[in-house]
Design a protein around this nucleic acid. Structure first.
Ligand code: MN
Ligand code: MN
Ligand code: MN
Ligand code: MN
Lengths: 228, 228
DNA sequence: ATAAATTTTTAGATTTGTCTAAAAAATATT
DNA sequence: AATATTTTTTAGACAAATCTAAAAATTTAT
């Protein structure tokens, strides 16, 4: 339950990007994040990360012990989630109102997420009618920083005959998203696993009545929600 | 007739702000702009301006001769107008769709104007249905950089019994805009000059049927278009 | 338990944009 | 025309964010 309380301090774009990176790496690893991983994610050098992490630590936004990785403090997490909120709201706006495709929004949202104005963010949220998911199926934090934690699985983990709905993408690279567009695989599509090929782990699916085969590369990057 | 042609180079926010400042100072002065004036406008020091102006000169965006002031090159002007286009389009968006008042938009537009994406700018323009003026009555350049050059006068210059329409504000400070809101003076209002007080240069006006008196401070900061 | 490999940090440099204080040039005053 | 004032530029410093190369710590392999 975050309240985005003590956010008088203004962070630089670089600082915001670091917090966001640390947040998302922590979510998957579930333990303190290494400087190397952060460097890789932000396409920078580990030495730069060490410097920045020290600065964020001085500002009480991360917990950092030399050689032992980085994690976010409560306040750091609030900031990270707030930036993610802005990023995803802008993505919704771009797709819904400006004719962007879901593979075109990332770079622009990466810039827009750093614009500082409470009124802007909350106004945009209201204008969009408080969307709960972004174009890639990722949940959008509300103004208090709360967001839905869904019970999702990766498609490749489903067993034969299980039915589910596509709700998100793990990889949101332009290449993967374009592949999905081409194959007419959309979020919201109902699917059923017809067959799993043990040789290459490819899957035969029934998507909205259509029978198609997808490689493991694909199935392991699609999130599904199992029908109850 | 600008075509926004050679804009492969990416400018920093600081560079963009300098170009915009030089542009608007040049428009009023109509001659090379001094480093001091630029410093004042950008709330920085003249020595910083000298440094930046040298850099912009190296990039062929400004004409600069030591001790003789600064003017924009064709390319510099293109950039400046493009930033102004973005600034004003965002202002329209904020007022029309996010519930901002005209005195609240400037600071946020100041940030949004630096977001780099052709598709975003042109998409926003289309979404807003190609607005020709921003909330303060300033013309919005189109994607080619062309904009309406209107035949406007300052209200204080009108003579008794002349009729005209309020079309813009010279001062767009929050204080002035709030005063106008309070006095219910809006863009588009039809006015007639009833009387000019020679003692303090105040004016008695008929605005949309209402009789009101305004000081010269006010009348010299309102743009009007005379009825033909 | 040592040695080798990998990861992380430090040291020192660079770029961008800013500042203060001093020098130089331009402008105004006598 | 000489002097005083104002404007503009230069010189040197600093903070932010980055880099490379070297040192230190940790982890892995023998
Ligand atoms: Mn970003
Ligand atoms: Mn997304
Ligand atoms: Mn700006
Ligand atoms: Mn405006």
């Amino acid at each position: 339950m975050f309240t985005f309380g003590l956010m008088e301090i203004e962070l630089s774009q670089a600082e915001e990007n670091y917090l966001k990176a640390i947040y998302s790496l922590f979510v998957v690893a579930n333990k303190a994040v290494s400087t190397n991983k952060i460097a890789e994610k932000l396409e920078t050098k580990a030495s730069s990360v060490t410097d920045m992490v020290k600065k964020l630590s001085d500002k009480n936004l991360v917990n950092y012990v030399k050689y032992q990785g980085v994690s976010l403090t409560t306040e750091g997490k609030e900031f990270a989630i707030h930036v993610i909120r802005k990023h995803r709201l802008w993505e919704v706006f771009l797709v819904r109102h400006l004719g962007f495709k879901w593979d075109e929004v990332h770079e622009v949202a990466e810039q827009l997420e750093h614009v500082k104005s409470r009124k802007l963010t909350d106004g945009l949220d209201a204008f969009l009618d408080f969307p709960r998911y972004d174009p890639h199926g990722d949940p959008i934090p509300d103004k208090e920083g709360n967001f839905i934690k869904r019970n999702i699985t990766v498609l490749s983990a489903l067993k034969i005959n299980e039915e589910s709905k596509i709700v998100g993408v793990k990889d949101s690279s332009s290449a993967f998203l374009k592949y999905l567009d081409n194959a007419e695989i959309k979020l919201g599509a109902e699917i059923k696993v017809l067959h799993k090929e043990s040789f290459d782990n490819s899957m035969m699916l029934l998507i909205e009545g259509q029978k198609i085969s997808i490689s493991q590369q694909i199935s392991s990057n699609l999130y599904v929600k199992q029908n109850d």
